[in-house]
Design a protein around this nucleic acid. Structure first.
Lengths: 214, 214
DNA sequence: TAGATTGTTAATCGATTAACAATC
DNA sequence: TAGATTGTTAATCGATTAACAATC
């Protein structure tokens, strides 16, 4: 199970490979060379080969890569051959968007609970999943195995909830709150900071090249 | 206006500095050294100083950085001293979440229109902004200066809409669709690929260190 | 002034790209 | 077999970290 450490940059590229391979698969493309893929994806062929070879030799000299095989293998590397139970803490627009979304987009991530502090949402259902009150969260965690918790609530709420989640065995947090959660090393956190993304856009909008050169 | 090229990595860190400085400001901290900030942010002091010095000397030897001043300056670098008009194309949960969200979170980004193809949403308002039909988009763009367009609609829709936006002068696209938009060089695109973020989380969940070491 | 801490140069580290021998 | 293309080593490039002189 223990390969040498894979860099963050590589891990970040894997889902993109996966997406392109999925598209190729849909278009019934059977095989592809790193060169051809590099043109489609706008990266170097060298990078593709290096990235893949972190995990093994998936190609064949003189042939390239079998699309279906490579797609499946990257899926396995990403853990998409497994299923995960997920809860969403914070049933605002964003939480509800995720609830509607995650199930659709990718099998394997199954939303089994949605929580909120707002009692007006009590009993309201999103995609058949009733919104529960946050004070029932701990009990719920004890009665249900939860792999992933998405935090779609304000900063202070997220900081309060995270340790409770961790205490009750949640090992992965998808954090949409505007804060960096400080959690034990064996808990993985993936941050989605939308306002920081928007600021990057704003930066780039103000610093882009004048349209002179093509 | 033309400094030497700033790397993507640096730009990505700026909003995080901005957030920490904002928090410090709220806590009435007047000055901070790169060393102290580095501890709070879990980065090296060297990196902070290098990053900032891409844009100028904001500190003072023997003193450190004035929090309020640095906060303001980074804000300017990010373009947060300006205002932007924004539209949201795709009025599903995610689009509505953004509409509710962007205004709150950061002044300066003002949502002036929301569009969707679904005629059942016609006339429905989100935060006082009526949802318009997509076939009115082009006219709207001609009548209103739009700086930023958020694309919160499916892949195919996004690929159709993007060129229309660009043709009518939109220079910044916040893309939530699962596709890489191929647009002219003077248009900036910031991608938020949630499913890829979730896959990274899944990867890390499956490859994290066993909890042995602290 | 002495102490602190920046701005900046130099050293190191890591990631990307190039090159090519291995091999299908 | 000859041609294509990988897997992998070596070279380059860029980003991070360390060190320290400048200076408040």
């Amino acid at each position: 199970m223990e390969e040498r450490e894979i860099s963050k940059a590589v891990v970040k590229r894997l889902p993109r490979y996966y997406r392109y391979l999925g598209d190729l698969l849909e278009n019934k493309v059977e095989r592809i060379s790193s060169n051809e893929l590099s043109h489609q994806m706008n990266v170097t062929a060298s990078q593709i080969r290096q990235d893949l070879n972190n995990f093994g030799g998936f190609g064949q000299q003189g042939y390239g890569y079998n699309v279906k095989y490579l797609y499946t293998e990257i899926g396995k590397i990403l853990g998409l051959d497994k299923t995960y139970s997920m809860i969403i803490v914070g049933a605002g627009n964003l939480g509800q968007a995720l609830a509607n979304y995650v199930n659709f987009e990718k099998k394997g991530f199954s939303v089994i609970g949605i929580f909120d502090v707002n009692s007006r949402l009590s009993g309201v259902a999103v995609r058949g999943i009733p919104i529960r009150m946050t004070d029932q969260l701990e009990t719920f965690l004890q009665e249900n195995k939860v792999h992933i918790a998405a935090l779609t609530l304000p900063k202070t709420g997220a900081e309060e909830m995270a340790p409770i989640l961790v205490k009750n065995g949640v090992k992965a947090i998808w954090n949409f709150a505007h804060t960096d959660l400080n959690l034990p090393e064996d808990v993985v956190v993936e941050n989605v900071h939308l306002s920081e993304s928007l600021m990057q856009l704003s930066y780039n909008l103000n610093h882009r090249e004048p349209q002179g050169k093509e």
